[in-house]
Design a binder for these strands. Structure first.
Lengths: 343, 343
DNA sequence: CTGAAAGCGCTTACAG
DNA sequence: CTGAAAGCGCTTACAG
């Protein structure tokens, strides 16, 4: 049985401090016109009463909640755990808070948006695909900016922050070619998203440019998870007993899954028997058993670009469109591609 | 430049539907006394206007936000990613939302609580330690239940949901003993929390009971992370060139870090040269390279117990204290401890 | 700089 | 079942 807690309001504080309720409100708002002395009196009284302003009430008048919604599609990929952590830190610094939605089988992006609309959030960050134009409209009508993270959806009118995925794919292709690879496999991620497709396109285009025949490039779906990477590698080996020279995991976690099966179940050595590369540069891929060569996604810059586009501080001003441009990633050389062959 | 979005309120819907504003409010509240026909009219009008009730406004009157705060101490341990995912799913089912705080260097639990107090959350879930009694008081005064997850703090008056950690530690000790181990190392986690200490205590007690001398049990701090596990294993090897018979990682992620160094840098085989066990049963520990023997934390049951103690549905009723009892975990046999020796 | 008062968008007794 | 009205706890012109 919880006792009926008596709520302390700004009126109680005003009474104790001997000022008006307006003064209490002003005391808690930085930059408002109030005498330093009055503010002190109020703050003292508030301290004595353990008073904390009710942001629900203030949101109602200001139409700002200081809450940003973040919709997470896939926590099975540690990349997004790092993303969440980074957003948490940066939002913290801006004095904003995160309302987090983790998508499940029966809840899609649109449902999540419908659920967050009532909360009058100041913005929404989307790390999952499949957003409908209608939902972008719902947000837009309410003045809620939405920005996609690590993806974009053409013609939705929502910003899409991402790194230069095609360029990254090309860099991996070049590294493989330089190391002498001539046959290839790709393990692809979410077929509905732009990210996997863009990386694959860059990769394949560069290979074709180098004169590699299309028939020397196979592709397997890995569903963006470790387990998917495992299954894709098995499918690949079932398909053809001799592995390709090089495997491009469209993200690190799938590359890691593939490496594990290839080494443990098929006794293959990386990179001696088969080269591997990933994409993202998650810390997990840098660990001892993997030392994965990959393309680093500039998470910090991507997060900051996202926040810029959300334009939290000054919602009525226009936004710097340049933040919507792809950000360059760069190749991180580790041990899963041998150094270039000088022939 | 975002256009000044015109807010649609219940009054607009009422006007269109030709009913009172109260009727609109009732139409959206399940179980309220309203004619089915009236509700339909309202819902139709709402649909036409893309109206969604403003929960900020309703929270102000009802004093319920339907938001639960969850404070995450350590996303470097994947266990907590899984915990977050589980809470997300269960809270979803209860139509509640999560305000997530990720703790950083310069933000501690108490700061996070101070930040969430203004939001009138319906409850707070804490997966980090170091909560002050004063903060529990602040929450209590406001009628906000707080429950600790995977830890407890004696005498704070906050519930602490956890699995039976001492029993888990004992089970690991028994498995090691049965497999013939006679010298031991522990890699411990957060020294300020109860969880690591409880597991260690159960482990050591069981060993001592079996006549193992205290001098045969060494302990290394691993800071609850993969990297910490790596460092602890290195420290162990530096300390004594011959490894112990068995290593107990107080959690899986540290055990995984230790396994990786031991095998890759020291060429040791697991379990032939050194046995290893963890605690938590994170999916990552079940992967091919590890196949880690561990104690499963019953996350689903722990999450449900937490939600029970939060008592979201009926905040004025009393809570089932039994949910505060430790929940049994069980040993998951995999490949890092050989089967019992029959001598 | 300060206070009285209207208003933010709902919910919920109250009366009918 | 329905509507008019007070109230939730703030913010912010407005007047002084």
């Amino acid at each position: 049985m919880r006792e009926g807690s008596i709520r302390t309001t700004s009126f109680d504080v005003a009474a104790l401090a001997g000022v008006s309720q307006s003064a209490v409100s002003r005391a808690f708002k930085p930059g408002s016109s109030i005498a330093a002395e009055t503010r002190e009196k109020v703050l003292d009284a508030a301290r004595k009463l353990n008073y904390v302003p009710n942001s629900i009430a203030s949101s109602l008048t200001t139409h700002r909640s200081n809450i940003v919604a973040i919709i997470l599609g896939d926590l099975n990929n540690p990349f997004y755990t790092h993303v969440l952590q980074t957003f948490g830190r940066e939002l913290q610094a801006l004095n904003r808070h995160m309302l987090v939605f983790t998508l499940t089988e029966d809840m899609h992006t649109d449902d999540a948006i419908m659920q967050l609309l009532p909360y009058q959030v100041d913005g929404v960050i989307l790390t999952s695909a499949q957003l409908s134009t209608r939902m972008v409209g719902m947000c837009h009508d309410r003045g809620i900016p939405v920005v996609l993270f690590n993806r974009y959806i053409p013609n939705t009118g929502a910003f899409g922050v991402r790194c230069d995925n095609p360029a990254g794919g090309r860099q991996i292709a070049e590294a493989f070619l330089a190391a002498g690879a001539r046959t290839f496999a790709m393990i692809t991620g979410d077929p509905k998203g732009t990210t996997s497709a863009d990386r694959a396109t860059g990769f394949v285009d560069r290979l074709l440019d180098a004169g590699i025949p299309r028939s020397a490039i196979n592709s397997y779906e890995g569903g963006s998870s470790y387990e998917g990477g495992v299954e894709a590698a098995k499918a690949m080996m079932a398909n053809d007993a001799t592995p390709p020279d090089a495997i491009f995991g469209i993200n690190d976690i799938m590359a890691m899954g593939a490496m594990d099966v290839l080494r443990i179940e098929y006794g293959l050595r990386v990179p001696e028997d088969v080269m591997v590369a990933g994409f993202d540069d998650i810390p997990e891929g840098a660990r001892l058993p993997y030392r994965l060569t990959t393309v680093r996604q500039p998470i910090n810059r991507m997060v900051r670009a996202t926040l810029d586009l959300l334009n939290l501080e000054n919602p009525d001003s226009s936004v710097d469109i340049a933040s919507d441009l792809p950000i360059g990633g760069h190749l991180v050389w580790r041990n899963t591609i041998p150094p270039a062959k000088s022939e």
